[in-house]
Amino acid sequence: MSGWDLGIYVAAAVLIVAPLGVFSSYLREITRRLREDDWGAPPPTPLFRTGRYTQEEKEDR
């Protein structure tokens, strides 16, 4: 197996695994939004740049 074969397997793995992972986390979120009929957003967090987080962000983390 050459380096090019390896590159192909890595690229194919990224293209197959990454969307499945992203889609599963999207499904969790969209299920919650549908259940709560929530299509708005919390206010932006201006503390981001300072490295401090809001209480809500801390809970997210």
């Binding site: 192909i8 690229a11 194919a12 793995a13 990224v14 293209l15 197959i16 990454a18 969307p19 499945l20």
Partner: peptide, 8 residues
């Protein structure tokens, strides 16, 4: 992405 990965 999935279809291209499988095709590749």
């Amino acid at each position: 992405a999935l279809s291209l990965g499988i095709a590749l």
